[in-house]
Computed example of a mutant assay.
Amino acid sequence: MTEKIGVLGTETAQRTGVERVVNAPLPTVYGKFQAIGYMDHDRGDEQVALVYGDIGTENVLTRLHSECLTGDAFGSQHCECGDQLASALRAVVTEGRGIVVYLRGHEGRGIGLLGKLQAMALQAEGLDTVEANVALGFPVDARDYKVAADILRDLGVDSVRLMSNNPRKREALVDNGIRVAEEVPLLIEPCENNITYLRTKRERMDHRLPHLDAVAHWS
């Protein structure tokens, strides 16, 4: 793994738009990762990939995790993001190898923190997450996964086992030259505070969330 995550040259950065800046050990409550820091020159965002073990090149267990301050840091029950991040980190440690790419600039499906909070306020008044974004003049989903594919390519990854319930992530990786060998569900037990949000993701954004059928009694 050490050889694969050495310092990038400027030629590679110019070719992909992403430049590897730093590689630092990151001990966590889940295990000891390598935090590989990147600069996305296309969008101006700082990005990080948490790499565990000798990842190899094929069928690498991978999570593309969209930044979510409210869920990841504050433990919001409005979404399942924080639990998904923790589950993904545990999964790659259990696997013995894997990657979690933490995607900055993806807050609120790409509309930013303040936009997300505005959308949440509208949802509290009865709109669903799709209606709220549209009412504010935002796209339903503004995220771009090219930088994730560039990071995976830099790490030497040819194919992944993708931890996601969102078919758009698979399509984006394939479109950017990363083969998806398997889609691994990342299902989190819903709660009363996020069931409407999750149902909207399933019904209006085609997320694969079959476990919601078990809580059909919640309105």
Score class of each variant (00 low, 15 high):
3 E>S: 06
8 L>M: 14
9 G>P: 07
10 T>Y: 11
11 E>A: 13
14 Q>A: 13
18 V>D: 02
18 V>N: 13
19 E>A: 14
19 E>Q: 14
20 R>S: 05
20 R>D: 00
22 V>Y: 08
23 N>R: 14
25 P>K: 00
27 P>I: 08
29 V>F: 05
29 V>A: 15
32 K>T: 15
33 F>V: 01
34 Q>L: 05
34 Q>E: 15
35 A>M: 15
36 I>Q: 11
37 G>N: 11
38 Y>H: 08
39 M>F: 14
47 Q>A: 07
49 A>P: 10
50 L>R: 08
51 V>Y: 06
52 Y>H: 14
53 G>R: 02
54 D>I: 10
54 D>F: 04
55 I>G: 06
56 G>F: 03
58 E>G: 07
59 N>Q: 15
61 L>Y: 12
62 T>W: 07
62 T>K: 07
68 C>Y: 12
70 T>C: 09
73 A>D: 13
73 A>P: 13
74 F>I: 14
77 Q>F: 15
77 Q>A: 13
77 Q>K: 14
78 H>A: 15
81 C>S: 15
82 G>D: 11
83 D>Y: 10
84 Q>P: 09
84 Q>L: 05
85 L>G: 13
88 A>F: 11
90 R>A: 15
95 E>D: 12
97 R>D: 00
98 G>V: 02
98 G>I: 03
104 R>W: 03
105 G>V: 03
108 G>I: 03
110 G>W: 08
112 G>V: 09
112 G>P: 06
115 G>T: 05
119 A>V: 12
120 M>S: 08
123 Q>N: 00
124 A>S: 12
126 G>Q: 04
126 G>E: 04
126 G>F: 05
127 L>V: 01
129 T>C: 09
133 N>C: 02
134 V>W: 07
140 V>A: 12
141 D>W: 06
143 R>H: 09
143 R>E: 10
144 D>G: 04
144 D>C: 03
144 D>A: 07
145 Y>N: 10
146 K>C: 10
148 A>F: 01
148 A>K: 01
150 D>I: 02
152 L>M: 02
152 L>H: 06
153 R>P: 03
156 G>R: 02
157 V>G: 04
172 A>Y: 12
173 L>F: 01
176 N>G: 07
178 I>F: 04
180 V>E: 03
182 E>V: 09
183 E>S: 11
184 V>N: 04
187 L>M: 10
189 E>H: 12
190 P>V: 01
192 E>M: 04
193 N>Y: 12
194 N>E: 05
195 I>T: 01
195 I>C: 04
197 Y>M: 03
197 Y>F: 11
197 Y>A: 04
198 L>E: 03
198 L>T: 02
200 T>N: 00
202 R>F: 02
202 R>V: 02
203 E>W: 06
204 R>P: 04
206 D>H: 14
207 H>V: 08
207 H>I: 09
208 R>G: 06
209 L>H: 04
213 D>C: 05
219 S>M: 13
